[in-house]
Structures are given as structure tokens and as C-alpha cells.
Computed example of a mutant assay.
Amino acid sequence: MSAPVPYQHYDPTSQMLVTPEDPDAPARAARLRSLGVGSLPLPEFDAFARNLARILETPYAMVNFIDESRQYFAGLYATGQPGVELPPQEASSSRIMSKDHGWCPHVVVRKKALVLEDVCDYPRFAGNPVVDEMSIRSYLGAPLIDWNSGMALGTICVIDTDTRPWGRQGLEIIKAQAQEMVARLHEIERQGGI
């Protein structure tokens, strides 16, 4: 007969890494600098975000680039819906968010789309600061994979304050739109950067 195993307290949050480790961050930051992305709002990317929100019928959409320490919304569309206070679109400094907020850092590290119909259904993601601070309930995002390096440079995403059944169609749309943005980034590079 074996000795009884002592009772161990289980902490369900102990295995939940809020911000994923990101070994590609330095190389990504260098690549973004070479493209000229990440320091100024870009009207073309704002228009892309606006169109993405229209297609997926969401109040918010972003073109988000992630470096070593932050996220930068080079493209941002926010309807100004009550209860959610996203930064105004005019000031570039207000487009910066910590890497421990939101789910785009997870998309970049995974290099795969992320579909959260109700973030509260996923303990790993439900505790994210934007759930309480901004009342976000659903998220749909896809990585922007650089064709040359295979590295994820950032994401495009949409969010909503209500739960959303994104379905296969939503996933296909966000992935196709991500490819369009990557093609645009490569076109920008061919033209000598932003």
C-alpha cells in the first residue's frame, strides 16, 4: 500500500500566462522599423480598419503591430459606443497599448487566428485587463505573416462588447483580410517604406 498523497491546493490561474513569451519580438521590431511602421497613425490603415469593421459588422477594428514592449494601432476604427473608451484616433500616443492587454500578442506568438466568441468562456483569456476595463466580450484576430521571414508582424482584429458567433465565415474573412494587409505591407516595402 502506498503512502497517501498530501492534499495540494490547485490554483487554476497558475498555468495561465497572461502575456505569452515572445522570442521574435526584437527581430519583429527591427522589421517594423525597416517598413517605417509603428510610430504614426496611417490614414490608409484607418480606412482598412473601418472597412474591416463594416464587413464583420463590429464597432471596433484594428491594424495592430507589436514590438518588444507594446502594441501600436497603426489602423484604428472605433464607433465611440458607450461603455468602451478606446483612444481617440487623432493622437498617435493614444494608440499604444501594453502587451499584457488584449489578445493580439497571443495571435502573434501562435501565428494563428484566434476566435473568441465569448472571452468569458476561456479562463486563460477571461482575466485579461480589457475585459473589465473596456467591457470587451468577443474577439476575432488573424496574424500578419511576413512572406519573406515567416514572422508575424502584427494582427488585424475586430472586437465587440457583446458575444459574437463568428463561425467559419468570420474566420475565413479575417484570414483573407489579413492576407490583403500583408500584400499591402509588401507593396509599401517595394515603394521604399512609409
Rank of each mutant, 00 (worst) to 15 (best):
residue 72 Y to R: 04
residue 191 Q to C: 13
residue 185 L to Y: 07
residue 183 A to E: 14
residue 115 V to L: 13
residue 161 T to I: 06
residue 86 L to D: 00
residue 73 F to V: 05
residue 137 R to N: 03
residue 115 V to C: 03
residue 121 D to P: 08
residue 80 G to I: 12
residue 86 L to R: 10
residue 82 P to C: 02
residue 5 V to Y: 06
residue 105 P to T: 04
residue 44 E to H: 10
residue 95 R to D: 01
residue 88 P to T: 11
residue 193 G to E: 08
residue 145 I to H: 11
residue 128 N to G: 02
residue 36 G to F: 05
residue 171 L to V: 00
residue 39 S to R: 12
residue 171 L to Y: 12
residue 168 R to S: 10
residue 143 P to F: 13
residue 185 L to D: 10
residue 113 A to G: 13
residue 4 P to T: 08
residue 123 P to L: 05
residue 138 S to I: 08
residue 20 P to E: 08
residue 56 L to C: 05
residue 52 L to N: 01
residue 61 A to L: 02
residue 49 A to W: 00
residue 166 W to Q: 01
residue 53 A to N: 04
residue 64 N to K: 07
residue 68 E to G: 01
residue 40 L to H: 12
residue 79 T to P: 01
residue 128 N to M: 04
residue 154 G to D: 11
residue 15 Q to D: 13
residue 149 S to D: 06
residue 89 Q to V: 14
residue 103 W to K: 03
residue 183 A to I: 07
residue 164 R to V: 10
residue 133 E to A: 15
residue 187 E to V: 12
residue 172 E to R: 14
residue 194 I to L: 14
residue 185 L to A: 03
residue 31 R to T: 13
residue 154 G to L: 10
residue 124 R to L: 09
residue 88 P to I: 01
residue 113 A to Y: 15
residue 22 D to F: 14
residue 160 D to F: 08
residue 132 D to Y: 06
residue 57 E to F: 06
residue 5 V to M: 10
residue 19 T to C: 15
residue 16 M to A: 07
residue 17 L to C: 07
residue 94 S to D: 10
residue 25 A to E: 08
residue 133 E to H: 08
residue 19 T to E: 13
residue 189 E to M: 14
residue 27 A to F: 03
residue 46 D to Q: 04
residue 54 R to T: 12
residue 8 Q to P: 00
residue 45 F to E: 05
residue 75 G to D: 03
residue 157 C to P: 00
residue 79 T to S: 15
residue 133 E to M: 12
residue 129 P to G: 02
residue 49 A to E: 06
residue 163 T to P: 06
residue 2 S to A: 14
residue 161 T to L: 02
residue 157 C to G: 00
residue 25 A to F: 00
residue 186 H to C: 13
residue 139 Y to R: 06
residue 121 D to T: 11
residue 179 Q to M: 12
residue 149 S to I: 08
residue 55 I to E: 04
residue 29 A to L: 08
residue 30 A to L: 15
residue 112 K to A: 11
residue 46 D to C: 06
residue 193 G to W: 11
residue 163 T to Q: 14
residue 120 C to V: 03
residue 103 W to C: 06
residue 110 R to T: 05
residue 68 E to C: 13
residue 97 M to N: 14
residue 132 D to F: 02
residue 66 I to R: 10
residue 100 D to Q: 03
residue 155 T to H: 14
residue 47 A to L: 12
residue 7 Y to R: 07
residue 76 L to A: 05
residue 130 V to H: 03
residue 63 V to R: 02
residue 43 P to Q: 07
residue 93 S to V: 05
residue 59 P to T: 09
residue 131 V to N: 08
residue 97 M to S: 09
residue 26 P to K: 05
residue 8 Q to E: 13
residue 109 V to M: 02
residue 114 L to G: 04
residue 93 S to P: 07
residue 77 Y to F: 15
residue 84 V to L: 11
residue 63 V to L: 02
residue 54 R to W: 11
residue 186 H to P: 04
residue 149 S to F: 09
residue 47 A to P: 01
residue 168 R to W: 02
residue 31 R to Y: 06
residue 102 G to V: 00
residue 61 A to K: 06
residue 129 P to Y: 00
residue 16 M to P: 01
residue 80 G to D: 01
residue 62 M to P: 00
residue 125 F to K: 01
residue 18 V to G: 15
residue 52 L to K: 08
residue 167 G to M: 07
residue 63 V to N: 00
residue 176 A to C: 02
